[in-house]
Design a protein around this nucleic acid. Structure first.
Length: 534
RNA sequence: GCCCUCGUAGCUCAGGGGAUAGAGCAGUGGCCUCCGGAGCCAUGAGCGCAGGUUCGAAUCCUGCCGAGGGCGCCA
């Protein structure tokens, strides 16, 4: 890769000046302004203190040395601003990108090895099985699923889970609510009053166990909604099965054996404050019943059997829970760094300019299924993935519906459809692609062609950054920019038109193929479909 | 009161310590004789406030202001 070549050249030049820096320490960046070249380095600014020279002076000396050891692709290098070394490259470096994309293909390009040999267990959504998934929960689904795809592309062995709370107070309340609806009796206090409860109650067989039946019914609903948005899980972990296996007892035993458990005020406590939690937490209530915390610890402990790094995606309303879980896991012998919680901000749903408060119990809700049915799975999924998980997201249902046709996802998918269309049209015209090695890529000099390759060249680093920052939205941002580059190219650079020279046509056909590969990878990471026609 | 997030254009949001802070939507004006106009091109406006660290801060630190969330022997 060109950045490595440039960094190595800079490192060599520095060592000639008596400054030793590993090439990997030298950062190459893409200048914001095109006039500032193709690549830029700030080494002179960073090293100036150590070198005892001012940055521009050092940069100038670097250039002198670089001239004698010139790299092929460097057309010209210059000192700019406070001391940047800017490289203006010949288009060859972008033609090399095209070659790389074609030779590595859809499967190999932008595949990273940063996660090789590591495994991640990723839990997300895990909404209680007491009703349909609401539209806010869809965000965790889209996020988690895309993050898992990104992890996998980076070499992490990734295992995804949905923790099903199919026992406990909420499920019993839900079961009782189903019964009350079916039998026409009074709803229990704090029972579930949503429309779906009445609907489901009428489906419930007389001999069914309301809790078990209700959970199963809800889970099927959730599963289906997520699947329609292309979100799936490797494992649906049942809390009930976990508890039935005796995991609660063995977990408490292990914590006791470690000396982390105290008894006072009639209850059994875990000294989580020893690990930075605000206060200690109750394991067994004074009535002897375990709190929800116990099975949760057992579950998290067990997840380490399916990954070295355990990650939870949690809504902001659960962030207070992280220190106690981290404490408990450390007591059980896990490294603090092997447990990570990603805290996502909640979604605000707006309709007719008014915020819709979501509550399963009172029944005011917007189901993720409604959203998907209204705008389509790709629009819904991309809407979730457009923004950083740190951003409190506002989804305006009216706007999403009324502007469904100009949704950003179509901008991207339209580019893919256009590529497919070029292929079809090439068939119609009897144009075939020649052997890649015989194609004259040097003919690709139009700025639109080069911009397209430039965008394509940034995909590998974007994927790694997205994995490192746990930020699928960086792929969204990338693919929108990539689509813009493609539409610009498509507008200005005809491929099949009769006035295009055959050699140029061949080069462009391969360029289009490389773009197809780029879109294909990006759309797959986002879990979006790649339509041949729209 | 304490803790966690977040304040960027009219709206929804990008912005890995770097140079002149970017998109989309909304507004205005242009662009189809052959590959799909769901497209392309042009145009106005902005980093909540105050300090600090740094050669350099939207980005890191502190304080203030504002918004959301959390502070149960609930889950």
């Amino acid at each position: 890769m060109i950045t490595k070549v440039l960094a190595a050249a800079l490192a060599d030049a520095l060592s000639e000046l008596g400054i030793d820096v590993a090439p990997s320490e030298i950062h190459m960046e893409r200048p914001a302004q095109r006039e500032h070249g193709d690549w830029s380095s700030n080494v002179a600014l960073v090293m100036s203190k150590q070198a005892g020279r001012n940055p521009r002076e050092l940069a100038a000396e670097l250039l002198t040395v670089l001239e004698s050891t010139s790299v092929d692709q460097i057309q010209r290098a210059e000192v700019a601003g406070p001391g940047f070394v800017n490289f203006h490259l010949s288009p060859q470096w972008l033609h090399d990108v095209l070659t790389e994309v074609i030779s590595q293909g859809e499967d190999g390009y932008a595949r990273s090895t940063i996660g090789d040999g590591q495994s991640i267990n990723l839990e997300f959504v895990s909404a209680n099985p007491t009703g349909p998934l609401h539209a806010g929960g869809g965000r965790w689904g889209a996020y988690g699923d895309s993050l898992a795809r990104i992890f996998r592309r980076c070499g992490y062995q990734t295992f995804t889970e949905y923790y099903v709370n199919d026992r406990g107070l909420q499920t019993e309340l839900f079961g009782d609510s189903l019964l009350a609806h079916r039998d026409g009796t009074d709803l229990p206090e704090d029972g579930y009053a949503g429309e779906y409860v009445a609907e489901w109650a009428s489906e419930m067989p007389d001999d069914a166990n309301p809790v078990a039946w209700g959970c199963e019914r809800a889970l099927a609903e959730v599963q289906q909604s997520l699947a329609s948005m292309n979100v799936t899980f490797d494992h649906w972990a049942s809390e009930k099965a976990l508890v039935d296996s005796g995991a609660m007892e063995s977990t408490i035993d292990a914590l006791r054996a470690g000396g982390w458990v105290d008894e006072h005020e009639g209850a059994t406590w875990l000294r989580t404050s020893d690990f930075g939690d605000e206060k200690d937490r109750v394991l067994l209530k004074s009535d002897g019943e375990p709190t929800y915390f116990v099975p949760d610890i057992a579950y998290h402990n067990q997840k380490f059997e399916r990954g070295n790094l355990v990650i939870d995606v949690l809504g902001a309303d659960h962030h207070g829970y992280v220190p106690r879980m981290s404490a408990a896991l450390q007591m059980l012998g896990h490294q603090a760094s092997s447990y990570e919680a990603i805290i996502g901000q909640n979604v605000t749903l707006v309709r007719s300019g008014k915020e819709i408060k979501l509550s399963k119990r009172t029944g005011t809700m917007v189901e993720v299924r409604d959203l998907i049915e209204a705008v389509g799975p790709d629009v819904a999924r991309f809407a979730y993935l457009l923004q950083s998980i740190d951003t409190r997201q506002t989804i305006d249902l009216d706007m999403l519906s009324s502007q469904a046709n100009e949704n950003p996802v179509y901008y991207v998918q339209y580019a893919y459809a256009r590529i497919a269309s070029v292929g079809r049209e090439a068939n119609n015209r009897g144009v075939t692609r020649s052997t890649f090695n015989e194609t004259g890529l040097a003919l690709l000099t139009h700025h639109r062609e080069l911009e397209l390759l430039r965008a394509l060249s940034s995909l590998p680093e974007t994927v790694e950054i997205a994995a490192r920052d746990r930020s699928p939205h960086k792929i969204s941002t990338w693919i929108r920019e990539f689509a813009a580059a493609f539409h610009g190219f498509y507008h200005d650079c005809p491929v099949l038109r009769s006035d295009v020279e055959p050699d140029l046509q061949q080069a462009r056909l391969w360029l289009v193929e490389s773009a197809r590969i780029g879109f294909s990878i990006g759309l797959e990471l986002l879990g979006l479909t790649a339509p041949e026609e729209m």
